[in-house]
């Protein structure tokens, strides 16, 4: 019985410790991005990226979807995406692109916590997502 109690308590303690590590990042970034969404910053950034969208088989507006996915998460991206009325092929392209690369701020922070080369991984994810979107646009 003592073993079970000890294990349980250790689980709670370690769980709390790791939750705190994450929560410390989640709260400020969540607020920062919510504020940014209310300003024109994100749509300016999207305008900047929209010229490359056509190489991925996507309309210029899709830059907003990608940015929302990169910075926040897939649900934010889908919320931006639904009103655009995309085709099934475009949804598939975005699905692969965002599957490979999303929620980058928080996920990169987790990778940093496991003490690995997180910046290299971040670059790999972003480049892979663009390369793969370009590639499947050609083949499907």
């Amino acid at each position: 019985m003592i073993v079970i109690r000890e294990t349980f308590l250790r689980g709670i303690r370690n769980g709390l410790k790791t939750s705190l590590i994450l929560i410390k990042v989640v709260i400020p970034f969540y607020i920062l991005i919510s504020i940014l969404k209310e300003t024109p910053v994100i749509s300016y950034a999207a305008d900047l990226f929209s010229p490359i969208m056509k190489y991925l088989g996507l309309p210029g507006d899709a830059a907003m979807v990608i940015l929302a996915g990169y910075l926040v998460n897939l649900y934010a991206a889908i919320a931006v995406m639904i009103p655009l009325g995309l085709t099934a092929k475009q949804i598939t392209i975005l699905g692969l692109l965002l599957g490979l690369s999303h929620n980058l701020i928080i996920e990169t922070f987790v990778l940093r916590e496991i003490k690995t080369n997180y910046l290299l991984l971040l670059m790999i994810r972003i480049s892979l997502s663009l390369i793969m979107a370009f590639t499947i646009n050609q083949i499907i």
Binding site: T7, F8, R10, G11, I12, N14, G15, L16, T18, S19, L22, I23, V26, I27
Partner: peptide, 17 residues
């Protein structure tokens, strides 16, 4: 954060077991 907390703590307890 609450959601993260509610998911992570039970998982870590399970992991410890």
């Amino acid at each position: 954060s609450l959601k993260l907390f509610l998911i992570i703590v039970p998982l870590v307890v399970f992991y410890e077991f």
